[in-house]
Amino acid sequence: MYFDDFVVGESFLSPARTITETDVVNFAGLSGDYNALHVDNEYANNSIFGGRIAHGLLGLTVASGLFTRTDLNRKMASSLLALLGINSWRFLGPLKFGDTIHLEIEIVSKEETSKPDRGIVYFNRKVVNQRGELIQEGTTPMLIKRSNTNL
């Protein structure tokens, strides 16, 4: 798929993935984020969440990985030039141990660039858990080649 092939309003789904305690422990070690909500049972049990929760950024990271496992990503593999950012990402609910999440993706807009061989496609990404609850959301602009170009 090239820039011209994307249709605003088109949507896609990712496969699902369950968040485990191992994911949280590994992410804490990798990021250095040992916030008590993620690693301390006693503290987290007395929090508004009633138990430990995963890092919000772990959810964002897993969402990025889920995007790469979609048919959409496979179709645009040879035309994708760059992820340009993560716009207005919001953490709307807790990501709990054992939650199985998937990504709902919608093309929300397209933008021409000053270079005729590429354009920007904006994808709204929603992280949804097994209960159908929207727990994270944001928009990611991606630089995509146009068809019939030699980049």
Rank of each mutant, 00 (worst) to 15 (best):
L81Q: 13
T113A: 06
G32M: 10
E137Q: 05
R131G: 10
L66P: 01
L151R: 06
L60Y: 13
R118W: 05
S47E: 00
F3Y: 03
S109V: 13
A16K: 03
D4E: 15
R69D: 08
L37S: 00
R125N: 15
E10Q: 03
S31G: 07
T20Y: 14
I48T: 12
G50F: 10
D4H: 14
E42P: 09
D33C: 00
G138I: 12
I86T: 09
G51R: 10
R125A: 12
A44L: 05
T68F: 08
M1D: 10
Y43Q: 05
I144K: 11
M142G: 02
E112M: 15
Y2Q: 11
A28D: 08
V127P: 03
L72A: 00
K145M: 08
R125L: 15
T100V: 04
A54W: 06
R146Q: 02
F3H: 00
S79Y: 08
G98M: 01
V7Q: 15
S64Q: 13
R146W: 04
D40M: 02
L84N: 04
T113Q: 00
T20S: 15
K75W: 11
G51V: 14
L134C: 08
S64N: 14
E10F: 04
S109C: 14
V121S: 05
L13A: 14
T70E: 13
V24T: 05
N87F: 09
I19L: 03
E112L: 15
A77S: 08
G59W: 14
N150S: 14
E112Y: 09
L92T: 01
F49W: 02
T68H: 02
I105K: 05
H38Q: 03
L30E: 10
P94M: 04
K96E: 07
I135W: 06
S47V: 07
I135Y: 03
R17E: 15
S14V: 02
R52V: 14
G93H: 01
V121R: 06
E133G: 03
L60E: 07
S147P: 05
G29S: 09
L72R: 02
L30Y: 03
S11A: 13
E111W: 11
R74K: 04
T61P: 08
K110T: 15
R69I: 06
S14W: 04
F12A: 12
L57P: 10
S88K: 14
L80H: 09
A82L: 09
V128K: 00
T18H: 02
I144V: 15
S31T: 10
S47W: 00
P15T: 01
L83D: 12
G32Q: 08
V121F: 08
L103G: 04
D23H: 07
E112S: 07
R90V: 09
A82M: 10
G59F: 13
F91H: 02
T140L: 09
S11P: 00
D40A: 06
L72E: 05
L37G: 06
T68W: 07
N46K: 14
L134W: 07
E21S: 08
